[in-house]
Each structure stands twice: as C-alpha cells, then as structure tokens.
C-alpha cells in the first residue's frame, strides 16, 4: 500500500513538474495514435460508407472479412508488419522497422477494420431510411455515401472513438515493430509495460493516469457532442 501511494505521489510530481521524458512519451503517443486514427478514418469511413450504399457480388464476404478483422490479435499484426519491414522482408529497403512510421502502419492495420465495420453498420441504418428519398431526388451512389457520412457524423464520432480507444490501449504490435526504443519509439503503453517490468512504478503510474485522463476527456467530449446533436435532432 505504501509503495502504491508513494508511486502515486511520485507520479503526480512527475506530471506537475512537466518531466521531459514523460512529455516526450506522451507527445509521441499522440503523434503515433493520432496519425494512425487519421489514416484509418480516411480508409475506414469511406470504405464503410460505400459498403453501406452499394450492393454487389461478394459484398457479404467482404463484410464477414472486415468484421473478422476487427478482432485481429495485435501481436499477429505486429509480427506481419515486422516480417514485411525487416531487412529480409519485401519492404525492408525502406528502413522503417523500429521507427514511429512502422508503429503507425501497425496501428492503422489494427484500427481500419474497426472503423470500416462500425461505420458500415452505423450508416446502413441511415441508408435504409434515406434510400428511396435520395434515389427519388436523383442522388448517385458516391453522393449518397457522402450524404450518409455527413448526416451520420455524430454517430461516427463514437466509431472513431472506438478506433482511438483500440489504438491508445495497444501495446503488442507497437512493441514488436517499434522496439520500445527510448527517445525514439517509446509510447505510453510500451513505457508502462517496460517500467512495470523494471519496478519503476512511479513513471508507469504517471503514464497510466495520463492515459486514463485522456480517455476520460475524449469520452466526455464525444458524449457532449452526441448529446447536443441528439437534442437538436441531428443524431
């Protein structure tokens, strides 16, 4: 108990004193997770919207695959990206292994299916409601997908949040492809894992508190946005 309270106090001290290592880790985490979520959104939101609108042969197979990929084990993704980016791999010449870019790639692979599948699910409900009216107005498929993305934007904040949640909590894949190198590829989750194994609970706890705080703030923001939208009947 004493260890725990001491670690907690040290964590608070690290945070209030703006410890450089701590800030560096937090900023890199934001960069890696933020970029991964951004890229995953570009791919996943458009894929999900198009899947919500278009009916074609093989669509069901694609939906099953995307849903299955939502549960991708991070270490397997890490291993695949590692093998692809290692010197012996097809993209080894790029020299990306053990860089933040490799971590962003792994995170993007993990998050994209989540965003695509949840987007499709969410927008399909709106599509069923809008389909006849939009067709009647003469709206084509791509324009229909864009309309769904705009009108479903508040529901999609929850979808993006789910993707961000997965990214921010991820440790296995980024550890494998990033290597958890100090001042280079160390992010909050990998640092927590390392510091805990070393017994430096203070830094691990400080990072844990920051992680939880970030998650709490983002959830609160999304909740507020959705409540406002629901109140205004835009959700």
């Amino acid at each position: 108990m004493t260890d725990l309270s001491e670690a907690f106090l040290t964590a608070i001290r690290l945070m209030t004193s703006a410890d450089r290592d701590l800030i560096e880790i937090v900023l890199l985490s934001f960069k890696v997770n933020g970029l991964a979520v951004f890229i995953a959104c570009l791919i996943g939101l458009s894929t999900g919207a198009l899947l919500a609108v278009y009916r074609f042969k093989g669509r069901t197979t694609i939906l099953v695959c995307i849903n299955a990929l939502m549960g991708l084990p991070p270490v397997v993704v890490g291993l695949m990206v590692y093998m692809t980016l290692s010197n012996a791999g097809p993209l080894g010449v790029l020299g990306l292994l053990y860089t933040p870019t490799a971590m962003i790639i792994a995170q993007t692979i993990l998050i994209t299916p989540i965003i695509a599948a949840l987007t499709r699910q969410s927008l399909e409900l709106i599509y069923r409601e809008y389909k006849e009216q939009l067709t009647s107005l003469g709206v084509g498929g791509i324009a229909m997908a864009k309309t769904l993305l705009w009108d479903g934007r508040y529901q999609l904040t929850t979808v993006i949040l789910a993707g961000f949640g997965r990214a921010v909590a991820e440790v296995g894949a980024v550890m494998i492809v990033g290597g958890n190198i100090n001042h280079l590829t160390r992010i909050m989750t990998t640092a927590i894992a390392l510091e805990t194994s070393k017994g430096d609970l203070a830094l691990a706890m400080a990072l844990g508190i920051i992680l939880i705080t970030i998650a709490f703030i983002i959830n609160a923001l999304v909740y507020a946005i959705n409540s406002a939208a629901e109140h205004r009947a835009y959700a």
Binding site: E129, Q133, S136, L137, G138, G140
Partner: peptide
C-alpha cells in the same frame, strides 16, 4: 442509376412518412 436520375429530374415523390435529412 443514370436512368433513375434522368427521371428524377422531371419527377418528384413524397412518401407517406416524410424522409428528412438530419
């Protein structure tokens, strides 16, 4: 789709339950 679009330019339809965008 193209033909529907062409028709839709001279026709309009209103449904039993109005479908309004968010």
């Amino acid at each position: 789709e193209k033909q529907n679009k062409a028709l839709a330019t001279s026709q309009a339809m209103v449904f039993q339950k109005p479908v309004l965008l968010r």
